[in-house]
């Protein structure tokens, strides 16, 4: 494995929403670091501020206090180093553009030649397995295929970090397995650093090299767990491994504790 340098650093991140019914603390105090080339899953009970965390990482929301640092410089707004895949693919893809148009759109303002841009777009669409659908409109595709388009758009953008917000929450189980394998494949072949937010414990263990378990209000990192499964993963064999079951049970346990507000006593090892 190549040497890994720190890519993303989050320190004492805190986010408070002001609303009519009073202040809501979405994120209490989160700190973690992520190395280049890692695939980190963030998992936590529903309503624990996962999406807020992600928006802070992506620079879409300013944190109330704390620091998000990318390659040593603080994130103050959306940056070309990050690309987001949203959960609501139907609202994140533009229905008036074709698949190709959607993937190409973020590249328009990058200083690329026409040929370079075309290559990037074609390559990304092929990487997600949709070359036949390039000229269709997103709404002509199934939900899973639409999410593939969103992933293609993100990787064509050539970000340093790919940020995915519960991307597969709205697709059926079979499609979901295919998409998970796609994310694994993109990660192993392209070494794209990925932050993958999910509420699905199995998914986080299956996909991640690391799993960050978040606790509920105030949101903190309950546990930072390394997933010591072999890098070659497979829906059948990996999920059948005893280690997979152990890790899964452990994360489940941690999340139950998190709901009750207990602090992690020990690690899985």
């Amino acid at each position: 494995m190549p040497e890994r340098s720190t890519l993303l650093r989050v320190e004492h991140l805190r986010k408070i929403y002001e609303s009519a019914t009073g202040d809501v603390e979405a994120i209490g105090d989160i700190s973690f670091t992520m190395n280049a080339g890692e695939l980190v899953c963030v998992v936590g009970p529903s309503g624990c501020g996962k999406t807020t965390l992600l928006k802070c990482l992506a620079g879409l929301l300013p944190p109330t206090s704390g620091l998000v640092e990318m390659d040593g410089s603080p994130v103050r707004g959306p940056s070309p180093a990050m690309a987001v895949v949203f959960q609501e693919y139907g609202r994140s893809l533009y229905p008036w553009l074709t698949v190709r148009g959607n993937v190409e759109l973020p590249l328009r303002h990058k200083k690329l030649s026409r040929a370079e841009r075309d290559t990037l777009v074609t390559d990304a669409i092929e990487a997600v397995g949709l070359p036949h659908a390039a000229r269709s409109h997103p709404w002509q595709l199934s939900g899973g295929m639409q999410q593939r388009v969103a992933i293609a758009r993100a990787i064509a953008y050539q970000p340093e970090v790919l940020i995915m917000d519960e991307p597969f929450a709205a697709v059926d189980a079979q499609t979901r397995a295919d998409l998970e394998d796609l994310v694994r494949e993109l990660h192993t072949t392209r070494r794209i650093s990925t932050v993958f937010v999910t509420h699905d414990i199995d998914e986080s263990v299956y996909l991640g090299e690391r799993v960050l378990v978040l606790s509920n209000s105030p949101t903190r990192v309950q546990e930072d767990l390394a997933i010591d499964l072999p890098p070659e993963r497979d829906q059948l064999t990996t999920r059948a491994l005893r280690r997979f079951t152990e890790l899964r049970t452990h994360v489940y346990d941690q999340i139950q504790r998190a709901k009750l507000g207990q602090v992690a006593p020990q690690s899985a090892r």
Binding site: E18, S19, A20, T21, G22, D23
Partner: peptide, 8 residues
């Protein structure tokens, strides 16, 4: 209270 007045 402060937030309430913000909405108003």
């Amino acid at each position: 209270m402060r937030v309430l007045s913000a909405r108003r």
